[in-house]
Design a protein around this nucleic acid. Structure first.
Lengths: 154, 154
DNA sequence: GCATAATAGTTATGCGCATAACTAATCTGT
DNA sequence: ACAGATTAGTTATGCGCATAACTATTATGC
């Protein structure tokens, strides 16, 4: 691949992250959330109570990040951490009622953001997009074993 | 748009940023660069000497970020900042010889990263990808006036 | 049963990015 | 020509993310 194409792609990915994150930040700010925290709330909504190691895996970020995120969300009263009875090292993380209510609001914003994001694209492209992005992600994911032929986990 | 689709999209964008950046970090580390700095070097390669305000615009990040990036790259000997003769507020930023050499290495990595990133996708999709990503970016870009109908600035 | 390895979580530290508040220089209107 | 607005850049501070080093607990091999 020639440099111009490569550069266009890499730069486009970098700018998309910056802008999408910034837009998410401006939408989440009125709820008192910083971008990244919404992912934790939504994961708990999807999967239910889980320990931090599972959150770390699900969110794709490292344990120390989870420590900080959970601490702040706990301080805000949105989640609760209770020692796991079966494993005294682990904490079970779960949503409080306030957290559940907040997650519902986040869901609304999330839909609005997604619609805003794909505005002007043909429906066909929009339908393919998550699969394409997951393929890209899998291709550069140094965490997992590798996902070699991955034409999309759609 | 229903929540599942919206969530899939937003989450895919978030994960792609994390992973693409992490992969870039691991490729750039041997050159002594942190991700983000390569963008500044490449921009100077593309456009030539420019002042920080132009860099801020071109890179899509805020002036204080440019201050820090330029300071570190200057400390590393890769760029040089000289006062602009016509405007005593501004600094002209330009690559040193070392910086030019480094930028050439970054270009190699950049091509390799892009190829790795799009692995397994049909050529057709790869060709469309930068345009699609730019459309997405434009849709959530709160910096510019707005880019409403934007079906792609390809 | 006990030394060793593996795992859950935390703290410390550093980078990139942001916003807010500031200084210094340039531009503008009257 | 001079007051006020704009612009270039910096410092201070805070968040999300990372890695490295650490503690406490649980699992494993002999």
């Amino acid at each position: 691949m020639d440099f111009e194409h490569a550069d266009a792609l890499n730069q486009a990915i970098r700018l998309l992250s910056l802008r999408h994150r910034a837009r998410a930040a401006s939408l989440l700010a009125p709820l008192g959330l910083h971008p990244g925290q919404e992912a934790l709330l939504l994961e708990l909504t999807r999967t239910g109570p889980m320990i931090q190691a599972q959150l770390s895996e699900a969110l794709g970020c490292e344990p120390p990040s989870v420590t900080l995120m959970t601490r702040k969300l706990e301080a805000g009263g949105h989640i609760r951490r209770t020692p796991a009875p079966s494993d005294r090292r682990a904490s079970i993380v779960e949503l409080t009622d306030s957290g559940k209510a907040l997650a519902e609001q986040v869901k609304q914003l999330w839909c609005a953001l997604a619609e805003e994001t794909v505005g002007g694209l043909p429906a066909e492209t929009v339908a393919e997009l998550p699969g394409i992005l997951k393929t890209l992600t899998g291709n550069v994911d140094t965490r997992r074993p590798h996902h070699p032929g991955g034409a999309g986990t759609v």
